[in-house]
Amino acid sequence: MSQYTITVIKSEEEKPKPASDDLSFGRYFTDHMFIQDYSEDKGWHNPRIVPYQPMMLDPASMVFHYGQTVFEGLKAYRTEDGHIQLFRPNKNMERLNRSNDRLCIPSIDEEFGIDAIKHLVHVDHEWVPDAPGTSLYIRPFIISTEAYLGVRPSTTYQFIVILSPVGAYYDAGIDPVKIAVEDEYVRAVRGGTGEAKTAGNYASSLKAQELVAEKGYAQVLWLDGVEKKYIEEVGSMNVFFKVNGEVITPALNGSILQGVTRDSVIQLLKHWDIPVTERRISMEEIYQYHQNGELEEAFGAGTAAVISPIGELAWKGEQMEINQGETGEISRRLYDTITGIQYGVEKDPFHWVVRVK
């Protein structure tokens, strides 16, 4: 039983809802939002669901100046029989608290965080789209709000959740995308904030993404920040390679985000008795596997796109086509299985799904 009672103030005027079959990603927002405050004397308090609205923050709020903020991303799915469910929200709340710890933000009650999300989704349940491949994206985040310009952790915060009906993250959907290996800019280094889900990691990735987009690539494959030879992530997703029947993914090392979809992929592969290894892997290795005809598939894994096959890797002037630029068998099976569980059309042997309505 939660120690908190959520106050609900309903919007007096509902927004027009976009057509379910005409959704992009992150453009529309629902009628309500969740907010909870933190102060040193009260702890987390005053949880409430209110009409979606602009936020009033002091210009000196520390989030603007020192980037003390964390966020998460998960989705609500409408099943064929009209129910609404979440996918592994406990893992998102666990990771949110790991990010909180790294950014010196007070931890939240993880069980209550899930309750707050469920309550908000229930209030805005009519916004959960029903067209194939669509969902309601859920963005929990925490910001530092104290008006102070000294460099130290804030003493006040807000925990906020907003909702957005979305379509596919990439226009290509499950079709393979072209990726450029980045050997100048880095996303994160061990000892930094790479394993936390915090805004600065994403801001630092924009320059490289902008440059490769000009050359026709969908995303960047990030290498480690020290030697610039070991593979870390692809865009904002974890990355996997299938080599001679074995699936390999970079081991968590302090600079790689511990993805919920990553963990789901690893569990499914083990469940299917497909060899899967977490280890350090260099770009030179991947190049040699490709040259030897042993690189069978590559794909990114993350909440927004679920599985995004890689059809081509560009590295040091070489264009490495993977699986003839087609979606691989493992990529397709993982995508179909994970989305099938999320939408309630596949069995859920791991008890990953949480019912909302």
Score class of each variant (00 low, 15 high):
His32Ala: 04
His32Thr: 02
His32Asn: 09
Met33Thr: 01
Phe34Ile: 02
Phe34Glu: 01
Phe34Met: 07
Phe34Trp: 04
Ile35Thr: 04
Ile35Gln: 07
Ile35Asn: 06
Gln36Asn: 04
Gln36Ala: 07
Gln36Met: 15
Asp37Leu: 10
Asp37Ala: 09
Tyr38Arg: 02
Ser39Asn: 05
Ser39Val: 02
Glu40His: 06
Glu40Pro: 01
Asp41Phe: 01
Asp41Lys: 12
Asp41Ala: 13
Asp41Met: 07
Lys42Trp: 00
Gly43Asp: 06
Trp44Lys: 09
Trp44Cys: 04
Trp44Val: 01
Asn46Pro: 00
Asn46Phe: 01
Pro47Met: 14
Pro47Gln: 14
Pro47His: 14
Ile49Ser: 06
Ile49Asp: 06
Val50Trp: 04
Val50Ser: 05
Val50Asp: 00
Pro51Phe: 05
Pro51Gln: 06
Tyr52Ile: 06
Tyr52Leu: 09
Tyr52Phe: 14
Gln53Arg: 14
Pro54Val: 01
Pro54Lys: 11
Met55Asn: 04
Met56His: 11
Met56Gly: 05
Leu57Ala: 05
Leu57Tyr: 03
Asp58Cys: 11
Asp58Ser: 15
Asp58Val: 03
Asp58Glu: 09
Pro59Ala: 10
Pro59Ser: 10
Pro59His: 09
Ala60Cys: 13
Ala60Met: 15
Ser61Ile: 01
Met62Asp: 03
Val63Cys: 15
Phe64Arg: 07
His65Arg: 14
Tyr66Leu: 14
Tyr66Phe: 15
Gly67Gln: 09
Gly67Met: 12
Gly67Leu: 13
Gly67Phe: 10
Gly67His: 10
Gln68Met: 14
Gln68Tyr: 12
Gln68Leu: 13
Gln68Gly: 07
